[in-house]
Design a binder for these strands. Structure first.
Lengths: 111, 111
DNA sequence: CTTATATTCAACCATATGGTTGAATGTATT
DNA sequence: AATACATTCAACCATATGGTTGAATATAAG
């Protein structure tokens, strides 16, 4: 709650499909920049920038091993995201349409 | 999986704190634009644009009732988001640091 | 020491985003 | 019919984003 800005940046970072692909790739273990860039039809610099965004959002961390930068997934922001989105659980849990209708109707009541 | 673009837009929409506030507000029932705008230190037009973004992302729906536009929360994108972020569950479930260390170590093994 | 590899930095460009103000639209109210 | 209210549309502005290319840095290898 204190610093929403970090959460903002995590969401924004994950909004880009390339960055989500990178995050998913990192669930199978840390990797260096070149490896992460390989599957993409994009310049290495482009990927490097995406990594900087992910790092700035706290989604990945970097350790230098010689000339390679090794990137690892940091779970905390994802855990936060899961927790936050879980707050809406009652909105999709069973009787979805009925609930929606109910809400619309009750709105009309107290307006 | 087919159209990732919708998911992209949902994440991007939720990356803005004002829009998250609006979404959270809508969990307590539908509301019209003016009501939603009231708590914000922002022009009505600004809020209107945020609503358009949320609508474009499929996070809210709009029904016109006279001159008022009534906005309601659409649960599906949030459910998707919860499901997606849940895929990373094993990354924060117990023995977090140990797991991270393990991954870093195994990376060095097969490099 | 020279060369190759891994990566970033810097500049640039096009487009998107978040906000504003002012005018336009449509629906209520009197 | 005149006026007030709810909302969007349009233009504008500043800044951010996503990508490129080319040069710089740092480490590894011959």
């Amino acid at each position: 709650m204190a610093t929403t800005a970090r959460f903002d940046r995590a969401l924004a970072a994950l909004a880009h499909p390339a960055r989500r692909r990178i995050v998913e790739r990192l669930t199978r273990g840390p990797a260096c920049v070149t490896d992460l860039a390989a599957p993409f039809d994009m310049s290495l610099n482009g990927v490097s920038k995406h990594l900087k965004v992910l790092e700035g959002a706290g989604l990945i961390s970097r350790t230098r091993s010689g000339r390679e930068h090794v990137l690892s997934l940091k779970p905390e922001p994802l855990r936060q995201l899961h927790a936050w989105s879980g707050k809406f659980h009652r909105f999709w849990s069973d009787r979805l349409d009925a609930l929606e209708d109910h809400l619309k109707a009750s709105k009309e009541d107290n307006s």
